[in-house]
Design a binder for these strands. Structure first.
Lengths: 336, 336
DNA sequence: TTGTACGCGTTATCAT
DNA sequence: ATGATAACGCGTACAA
C-alpha cells in the first residue's frame, strides 16, 4: 500500500495511445499538437495524477527550476524577511528555493555552496557572503546566474547582479544625527569582523566624525556577534571601559537591542545619557521601549527583487549586469 | 569563458583509465575497489574538481537528498527558528532544504506541495498545515517520509511522525494563571479560524474557565491574523465592545505584542487592568516593555528533531511512527 | 501533426 | 577487483 509509483510520460502515452513525445508536447504546451489530442492527453494526465519529474527534466534540459538562497542566519528577522520576499517571488515564477544558513562560518558557507552546486541550481542569491573575493568569484562562476546582496565584486561579472544597501551613507546619516543632537563621544558597535557591511559603515562613521572634526578614538569601535547577546556584551564592556560614551551606532537592530539592554543594566538612560541608533528597522525596533531610532531598508523588497533579477538573467543571460543601490532611511524614534 | 562544463564520471574514468563504475564506487566509498585505485581516483577527481550531479544521481537512485520544509511564514520568528534548526540539522546530515511559505493560503499550500512532489524530495516537514485532513493525507502519501508539526492525523500513518506542542495544556496553564492572579473576564484572541493550534488552545481555555466556574461569553473570543497588526486590531475591537475584559490569552507572541500596543492606545495598564499572556516565547517577548508572560516552546529543537526523525525514516521506512508531544512552559514575566 | 532514436550523468545488475 | 550494459524519466533533433 505504500508502494505508490509515480505516473510517467510513458504511462500517459500508453493510455492516450500516442507517443511519449506527443505527451511531452502537450504537457509543456509546446506547439505541434492538435488542440483535440492535447485536450485528451491533459485529461488523461490529470486522471492518473501525472506530474513531470523535475529530476528527469533537469537532467534532460540542464535546468532545474531551483534557486539557492544563502543567508547568514534566517532567524535574524532581517534575513527572514529577505527569505520571505524571495520565496514569494520564486513561487510565483515557478521556482523552488533552497535555503542555506552560513552561520557566519567560512567553512560551512563553502560547503553549502558546494551542495548547491551539486544540486545544479539555476541561480543563487548570496547575502552578506563572507568568502574571500577569490573564493567567491570561483563559486559565482559555477552558477548560471547570481545576485549578490550586500557584497561587491569591484569588477563587473557577466552573470552577476548586485543589490547593495548604501551602508556608508546610512552610517553617515546616523552619526550625523547623533552629532546634531549634541553627542560627541560616539561609539560604533560593529558586528562581525569580516562583514562587508560592517566595514562600509565604519567608513561612513569615520567620515561623518571627521567632517565634524571629532577625533574618533580606537576604543570607540568594538566588534561583536550580530545578535542581541553580542550587542549587549560589547556595550557592557564599552560602557565600562569608556564611560564617557554618549552615543552608540550599532551594526544592526539586534545588536542595538542588546545595547539598550546593556544601558538599562548599566544605569544609563537612553537617549539622554547615551543615544542609540540601530540598522534594518526590524519590527521589534518600533515595539521596544524606548522605540529604536534606526536605518530602514526593505528586506522583503530586496528578496523579491533579487529573484526577479535572477529569473531575468536565467532566461536572458546576456543582459548587462545591474548594480542596484538601496538608500537606507533614518527613522527617528525615541532612542536617539 | 562562461562555458564551464562540469567534470563527469566519464571524464574522471578516462583520466584514471578505469571504468565509470569504478569511479562511482570510489566516489561513493562503496566496497569493491582496491585502496590504491580508490586513492588514485579520488585524487584525480579532486584535481578536476569533480562533484557528482545530484540530479543524475537522483534519477538513478530515486533519492534526491532534499527535504521540503513548509511553514506558514518564515518571517514569523517562531517559524524562522524552526527553519534554522531544520537547516542546521539537514546540512549536517547532507540534505538540502526547500523552503516554502504557505502564507496561510490553502491554494498556495497545495500548489507548493505539488512543487515539492515534482522535485521528488525524500521527505517533508509540514508545519501547521491548513489543508483538510483528506487533502493532507493524499499529499502525505506522495512523500517517502513526513513529519507533521502541530497537526494531527487522528490515525497512525506508516510514513509519518508528528511533533505536537501540547497547546491544550499550555492554554490551561495560561488561563489558570490569569485566574489565580484574580482575573475573571478572560478573552482569547485566537489567531486564524482554521488553525489547529488555535482550536486546541480554545479547548484548553474553555476547560480552565469551566474548572473555575467562570462562564465564558462568546464575545470574549475573537479571531485574527497571526501577526502583530492582527492582534492589535482584534484587541482594540475587543476592549471597545467588552470593556470589562481584564485578561487576554493570545494565539502567539506576535499577536500579544499587538495586544500590548492596543492596551497602550486604549489607555489600559498592563497587567493591573488587563493582564496579557502570549505563546511561543520569541526573543522579542523578553525585550518588550512590559516583558511578556508567555508559553515557551523551543522551535529550534523542533526543527532539528523533525529532521532527525525524517532522516531516520528515510533510511529505515519501517520504523514505527513516533508522536512526540512537547510541553510548553509558562514563563512568568511582567505582563501577567 | 506525430513518431523514433538518442543523450543527459549516474547507479544497478550481471558479468568477467 | 573491475567492467559492460541497461535503466532512471524526460526533452532535443531529426524523420515521417
Amino acid at each position: 500500500m505504500n508502494a505508490k509509483k509515480r505516473a510517467t510520460v510513458a504511462d500517459v502515452a500508453r493510455l492516450a495511445d500516442v507517443s511519449m513525445m506527443t505527451v511531452s508536447r502537450a504537457i509543456n504546451h509546446s506547439p505541434g499538437v492538435s488542440e483535440e489530442t492535447r485536450a485528451r492527453i491533459l485529461k488523461i494526465a490529470e486522471e492518473v495524477g501525472y506530474r513531470p519529474s523535475q529530476i528527469a527534466r533537469g537532467l534532460a534540459t540542464r535546468r532545474t527550476t531551483t534557486i539557492g538562497l544563502l543567508v547568514p542566519d534566517v532567524s535574524n528577522p532581517f534575513f527572514a524577511q529577505i527569505a520571505r520576499g524571495a520565496e514569494d517571488a520564486a513561487f510565483e515564477q515557478g521556482y523552488s528555493l533552497f535555503l542555506i544558513n552560513s552561520a557566519e562560518d567560512h567553512r560551512r558557507e563553502q560547503a553549502a555552496l558546494d551542495a548547491l552546486w551539486q544540486q545544479e541550481i539555476d541561480g543563487a542569491i548570496l547575502c552578506s557572503a563572507r568568502l574571500s573575493l577569490d573564493a567567491l568569484r570561483t563559486y559565482i562562476n559555477r552558477f548560471p546566474a547570481v545576485v549578490l546582496v550586500n557584497r561587491d565584486l569591484y569588477l563587473q561579472v557577466s552573470n552577476t547582479d548586485t543589490i547593495n544597501v548604501d551602508d556608508r551613507q546610512g552610517a553617515r546619516l546616523a552619526v550625523e544625527h547623533l552629532l546634531e543632537i549634541g553627542k560627541r563621544k560616539i561609539a560604533y558597535i560593529a558586528g562581525p569582523e569580516n562583514s562587508v557591511s560592517s566595514e562600509r559603515r565604519l567608513q561612513g562613521y569615520r567620515s561623518a566624525l571627521q567632517m565634524h572634526k571629532v577625533l574618533a578614538e580606537p576604543g570607540w569601535i568594538s566588534h561583536c556577534a550580530p545578535t542581541t547577546d553580542g550587542g549587549r556584551a560589547a556595550a557592557l564592556d564599552l560602557l565600562q571601559h569608556v564611560p564617557a560614551i554618549d552615543g552608540i551606532f550599532c551594526f544592526n537592530d539586534l545588536t542595538a537591542l542588546g545595547v539598550l539592554q546593556a544601558c538599562r543594566e548599566a544605569g544609563r538612560s537612553v537617549p539622554s545619557q547615551v543615544a542609540v541608533i540601530g540598522a534594518d528597522d526590524i519590527q521589534m525596533a518600533s515595539l521596544i521601549t524606548p522605540r529604536l531610532t534606526t536605518l530602514r531598508t526593505d528586506p522583503h523588497w530586496i528578496g523579491s527583487r533579487a529573484i526577479s533579477l535572477l529569473v531575468q538573467r536565467i532566461h536572458e543571460p546576456t543582459l548587462t549586469p545591474q548594480a542596484l543601490v538601496v538608500q537606507p532611511e533614518l527613522i527617528l524614534r525615541e532612542s536617539a
